[in-house]
């Protein structure tokens, strides 16, 4: 789960992260570093001297704070698509599929997630592992946890999880690198996600999402599986909407909580073959021609759990389709 902030910032991402912050932050008020260390000692039995020494070596990164303060601007879908779904990303996706075929096949069998979806997420997150970020995770999280008040609780929760990871996995806390926001490795997992969803897919005793493609592939597939991926079910399908019903349909919650039958009663004219009791949601995207509509199913919603934006989820899906198309021509 990559953490973004502009240019593709979306209200859904913001809402989702706020909810995470409320759910997962261990402490109600933003703490000072001293209070944070005290809590790590009392709650997780860390050695206070070890932590004090550790944080003396951690630099606060002002460049991260300036990136966070840049105002976010939501791009329309067609610009987002052009930026992310490029010919080279599609072609590299095909190469990645061939190179990692065994792990991808195993992940599909075990978690039910198609290979091209896992590939597309890794392709968009880090260009297939090329850009995993070179900020020290501890410096990113300490900077944002103690110098970015708006999200201090969230990042302190991530810092807490990160320190637990380093103890559980036997890592030097000063070594792991990630994005400016602390997202780690080939699939850009935040530390709390790593603790819940990362898997040791190659059974070498380590959950190495930084350099093991096998562990990264298993972890991304497991993340989607744990969030409710439905094996061999649709992700998203084009639809028509009765013009007078658009506002009503778009005011519904951004969750697949409505059956196709209920949506049809509210003005959806869907031509698909899914049973009427299938749960779905309306997705509107700005294309070059104007706004177009899709019916998103549970699996589309599951992709938005990786990054809470409909543009992001659609980019993953369409990149996956392009890669699968190319793969079907060059199996």
């Amino acid at each position: 789960m990559r953490l973004t902030h502009s240019p593709f910032f979306s209200p859904f991402l913001l809402l989702g992260l706020l909810l995470i912050a409320i759910n997962e932050a261990t402490w109600a008020q933003p703490n000072t570093l001293e209070q944070f260390i005290n809590n790590m000692v009392t709650q997780h039995h860390f050695d206070p001297q070890y932590l004090t020494q550790l944080f003396k070596q951690v630099k606060i990164k002002n460049n991260i704070l300036s990136v966070m303060d840049r105002p976010g601007e939501a791009k329309p879908w067609y610009q987002y698509r052009t930026a992310l779904i490029t010919p080279s990303r599609i072609n590299q996706g095909l190469q990645f599929w061939k190179q990692q075929a065994a792990s991808l096949t195993k992940a599909t069998a075990q978690y039910g997630v198609p290979a091209e979806i896992v590939i597309a997420i890794i392709g968009i997150e880090t260009s297939y592992g090329d850009n995993t970020g070179n900020f020290k995770v501890i410096e990113s999280l300490t900077t944002l946890g103690f110098h970015y008040p708006r999200r201090a609780e969230f990042f302190q929760g991530e810092l807490e999880a990160f320190l637990l990871i380093t103890r559980e996995e036997g890592l030097d806390p000063l070594q792991p690198e990630g994005s400016y926001a602390g997202a780690m490795g080939i699939g850009q997992f935040m530390p709390t996600s790593y603790r819940k969803y990362a898997v040791d897919f190659n059974k070498d005793g380590k959950r190495n999402i930084w350099t093991s493609f096998e562990d990264a592939i298993g972890s991304v597939a497991n993340y989607l599986h744990q969030h409710g991926w439905q094996r061999e079910q649709s992700v998203i399908t084009p639809t028509k909407v009765r013009p007078d019903a658009i506002d009503q349909l778009l005011s519904l919650k951004f969750e697949p909580n409505y059956t196709l039958q209920e949506l049809a009663q509210q003005g959806l004219s869907y031509n698909g073959n899914e049973p009427p009791n299938t749960l779905a949601m309306i997705i509107d995207l700005k294309t070059e021609l104007g706004t177009a509509y899709w019916v998103g199913f549970k699996n589309f919603y599951v992709i938005t759990r990786y990054n809470r934006s409909k543009n992001y989820a659609m980019a993953v899906y369409q990149l996956a389709q392009e890669i699968a198309h190319l793969y079907s021509l060059n199996p």
Binding site: T108, A109, P114, A115, E116, I117, R231, E232, Q233, S234, V235, N273, N299, Y317, A320, Q321, A324, Y327, S328, L329, P331
Partner: peptide, 16 residues
Amino acid sequence: VTPIPPKTDLTKPEVP
């Protein structure tokens, strides 16, 4: 002649 993957191909489930 490029064979179209069989319907049961697990790698393409979201394209029924």
